[in-house]
Amino acid sequence: MGTEEKLNTLAEFVIKGRHIDAKKTAQELLDENVTPQVILDEALMKGMAVVGEKFRNNEMFVPQVLVSARAMKLVMTILEPYFTASSISKKGKIIIGTVKGDIHDIGKNLVSIMLQGAGYDVVDLGTGCTAEKFYDEYEKNEANVVGMSALLTTTMVYMKTVIDYFKDKKAEVPLIIGGAPINQKYADEIGADGYAKNAYDAVILVDKILEKL
C-alpha cells in the first residue's frame, strides 16, 4: 500500500472509529518516515472534517462522533512527542468551557473534538467556569479564541458577564458562544464575536475569525 493510500485508510479508520487500526496505521506511517504534520493534515484532519460534515447533516450522531474522536486522540498520543519538538504546527489555540452554574458538557465536548480534529490546540476548562477562570486561562495560554457553552437559559446570561469582564480587562481576544438556547440574535445582544449552531459550524466560525486576524 502506498503512502497516499495508507493516509486515506487512516482517515477512513478515524471516520469509522476503528481506534486500534488507526493507531497501528499511524505507527506504520511514522515508521515509513511520513512526517507527523502530513499524518495530521492528510489523515486526521481530513477524517475529522468528514465526521463534522456528516454530523451536521445528521448522517453521523454523537456515539459515532465520540468513537471517531477516540480514534483521533489515540493517534495523537503517538504524534504527541513531535509536538514538543515543534515539528507540528497547530492552527491556533482555543480556550473552551461551560459557563458558571452549568454542569452540562456534551455539546462543549463535541465542539472541542471538532476543533482538535481541525488542527486546533484546545484547552478545555470543563464546566462551571467563572469569568476569572476564562480570563486567567486565556492569559496563561495566550489563546486566539475563547469559546463559551451553556445549555440552560438561566446560565446563558453569564456569558455576558464573561464578555464584560474581558472588556474591562481590555482583552482583545474574540469571544464566541454556543448552546441549545443560544442564537445569533442573543450573541449580537451580548456583544459576542460569533455564534455557532453546532460543533461543525464552530470550526468554520473559528477558521473565519482567525483568517481575519
Binding site: 472509529g17 454523537v62 456515539p63 459515532q64 465520540l66 468513537v67 477516540r70 456534551i106
Partner: peptide, 11 residues
C-alpha cells in the same frame, strides 16, 4: 456516564 454510555452503544 453520558459519554461513556453513548460510546458503549457501539462498543
Amino acid at each position: 456516564g453520558h459519554q461513556e454510555a453513548l460510546i458503549s452503544l457501539i462498543d
